[in-house]
Design a protein around this nucleic acid. Structure first.
Length: 655
RNA sequence: GCUGCCGUAGCUCAGUGGUAGAGCACUCCCUUGGUAAGGGAGAGGUCGACAGUUCAAUCCUGUCCGGCAGCACCA
């Protein structure tokens, strides 16, 4: 007998091996009908599974949040059946659930096109309408391999071989079609419902290995209800509207062109935001960090010493004299990182333990030859500015320095409106330098710091571990922030490095006069300023807060009678420290309002005959209807105050 | 880098084996209008680059460059 506890607290005994479905039927036929799966002690399982041990049982219906994964997984199976029905000979591989949907990878000589998707969807609806039950069978390895080999499903044979010996080979059938699958599934294909959509097609490597076959992947998504699907599609549209590449063009912030793949042409407005960002960071560093600047171009030998030439040569730009007849054939590399330069600065002159921690910061422009397929607007470029810093400290100072950096990073994000941040510790990768003892020590300290970060935030900051994701020279923290529409971006990073100081022979003189290697901590807050600005554009959807806005206000006239007053007002606003432009064009005010609204100018200062006579201004805010009429001086004082950056305001309030 | 798709005016996009079109933007003229498009005229293109097929290529084929989506990569 097995003892089961129900969600209402009731406890009943059943015969060993009874299925969830039988239990549900015994309670009520309607429960059995609407139940798609069960959970035993929170573990989701097939409803038809035989129950061998007691515990807490729950019946899941389609609306249960835990059923969403099942709906998507089942939908992937339906997709696979549909594809094989339409194009016999196509091999199936894997079809997992991912964030926001699922995909299925197929092997086929002809790749799918977008035009195939509606055809496949139609076939899927037929399969769903047939409502065949999902049934699970356990096969022997040999049988599974034989059946799949006979069917020509060679990828499946490989998958069977990859399943660990202690795991069963489970086959899920839906009518005549079946697939190797870990499960669980719902009771039948009909439970998938019709709130699904195939989204796109793409190539993907078999088992994620770029040396293996390229498969044809179909992405889709599914929800319990049509409203949920519609809401999701709407959210996709919203993300598209915020695309920084589109907004960058529309707002005249930057552009890219063919001659400079992956490098940004910053226009005046974009560069204004960029500089405002850097000015903010500089203020935040003041008093703690020393800002330095290391050369752009350094002899290859330096990069050999640092190890970059060995590890990342494929991704570096090389430079040499372009002259034909020069006898100087030295090879230089354009810096891909700032650290070797900072180490040279640290090494210049003897350093005492009294000078540590020494914190060198640089807004360093680095270049990396990124694979062409990786380039993506400002988010992934070949030339970018890191808000980089290297802290040289003693072993004992390491933990407190990490925490100090953590405070800086979190408070910076908060100033841009990012409150939800996750910190992850990335541990030793396979490809690495340094002894295991070094890694053990570094990881132990970082793990402790990670715990401190969580407790100091009162649990607000979530933490996690990324096993094997560390840099080749040391473990790191990654700071992941969540934007206004719920997307996650990894920006900041703190990396401990026991390797580089040693490679360069950097040392400080300790109390006892001995030479000691410093610990080096690499840290970045925005990461790449270019990318961070891209994130900000999407986060704010182009509606920057006043202090960051490239054009904070436009003075727009209603009639040319107000031109003189408008010029006077523009001059006064500039004196008040505002970034302001004037629009005296011979256009109607409707037209001007529309145009500046599209350009996302936060404040419109509208003046007509009346305002000129009364020395007032009609203020219209971006995205809002209606206006506020104020005396000129009061309006400018209000805006100047509103344009104070958050950190400056904080300092003023503290004073 | 790999797979697929794409490249026509500043932007968004039509279009055709006989060397091009719209809307917006731009310039000029009329209009001085009170909070998201007033009217008219004009100018603007080696149809991504280079080869090939053809009497003829922006269109068909190939190569390259660039972009988009995904994969792989990301010190």
């Amino acid at each position: 007998m097995v003892a089961l506890t129900f969600p209402d607290g009731a406890r009943r005994e059943y015969q060993d091996g009874i299925s969830g479905l039988d239990i549900a039927k015994g309670i009520s036929p309607s429960l059995a009908k609407r139940t798609v799966a069960m959970a035993i002690d929170g573990d989701v399982r097939d409803l038809s599974e035989e129950i061998r041990s007691g515990g807490k049982i729950e019946f899941l219906n389609r609306e249960d949040p835990r059923a969403l994964e099942l709906i998507r997984h089942d939908c992937a199976h339906v997709l696979a059946e549909a594809v094989q029905a339409l194009w016999p000979g196509t091999q199936v591989t894997i079809g997992p659930v991912i964030d926001n949907g699922f995909y299925y990878d197929f092997f086929r000589n002809e790749p799918f096109t977008l035009d195939d998707l509606p055809v496949i969807e139609k076939k899927m609806r037929e399969i769903i309408a047939r409502d065949k039950p999902f049934t699970c069978e356990v096969w022997s390895r040999d049988e599974a391999k034989r059946v799949f080999r006979d069917k020509g499903e060679l990828f499946k044979v490989e998958l069977v071989d990859a399943i660990p010996a202690d795991q069963q080979i489970k086959i899920y059938k839906q009518g005549d079609w079946f697939d190797l699958c870990r499960g669980p599934h719902m009771t039948s294909t009909g439970k998938v419902g019709n709130a699904f959509k195939l989204m796109k097609v793409a190539g993907a490597y078999w088992r994620g290995d770029s040396n293996r076959e390229m498969l044809s992947r179909i992405y889709g998504t599914a929800f319990a209800k049509q409203e949920d699907l519609d809401a999701y599609l709407k959210q996709m549209e919203e993300a598209e509207k915020r695309d920084h590449r589109k907004l960058g063009r529309e707002m005249d912030l930057f552009h890219f062109q063919e001659e400079g793949p992956g490098v940004v042409f910053w226009h005046a407005k974009g560069w204004t935001i960029f500089q405002e960002l850097i000015a903010y960071m500089r203020r935040r560093l003041k008093g703690t960090y020393q800002e330095v600047n290391a050369p752009q171009l350094l002899d290859k030998s330096l990069w050999e010493t640092s190890g970059h030439w060995g590890w990342f040569r494929e991704n570096m730009f090389m430079a040499r004299s372009a002259g034909e007849a020069t006898d100087d054939d030295r090879v230089f590399a354009i810096k891909p990182m700032n650290c070797p330069g900072h180490i040279q600065i640290f090494k210049h002159g003897l350093k005492s333990y009294r000078e540590l921690p020494m914190r060198l910061a640089e807004f360093g422009l680095v270049h990396r030859y990124e694979p062409s397929g990786a380039l993506h607007g400002l988010m992934r470029v070949r030339g970018f500015t890191q808000d980089d810093a290297h802290v040289f400290c003693t072993d004992e100072q390491m933990a407190s320095e990490c925490l100090r950096i953590n405070d800086l990073i979190l408070s910076t994000y908060a100033d841009f409106g990012f409150e939800e941040v996750v910190v992850k510790l990335s541990t030793r990768p396979d490809k690495r330098v340094g002894t295991d003892a070094m890694w053990d020590r570094a990881e132990a300290i970082m793990t402790k710091v990670l715990g401190d970060i969580s407790t100091r935030s009162g649990g607000r900051i979530k933490t996690g571990i990324n096993p094997g994701e560390g840099a080749f020279y040391g473990p790191k923290f990654e700071y992941i922030l969540r934007d206004a529409i719920g997307r996650d971006w990894q920006c900041g990073t703190t990396q401990v490095d026991f390797n580089l100081p040693e490679r360069f022979g950097a040392f400080y003189i300790d109390h006892d006069g001995s030479k000691q290697p410093p610990v080096m901590i690499h840290r970045a807050i925005c990461g790449s300023m270019e990318r961070f600005l891209g994130v900000l554009i999407e986060h704010f959807a182009g509606h920057f807060p006043l202090w960051l806005s490239p054009v904070q206000a436009v003075v727009a006239t209603i009639t040319s009678d107000a031109d003189e007053y408008a010029k006077e007002m523009t001059a006064a606003a500039l004196r008040a420290g505002l970034r302001v432009e004037s629009d005296l064009r011979n256009e109607k005010i409707n037209y001007k309002v529309r145009e500046h609204s599209h350009a996302k100018v936060p404040v419109l200062l509208v003046v007509g005959r009346k305002e000129a006579a009364e020395r007032t201004v009609s203020i219209r805010r971006l995205g809002k209807e209606g206006q506020q009429v104020m005396p000129l001086e009061a309006a400018l004082a209000m805006l100047a105050d509103e344009a104070v950056p958050p950190d400056v305001r904080r300092l003023r309030q503290a004073a």
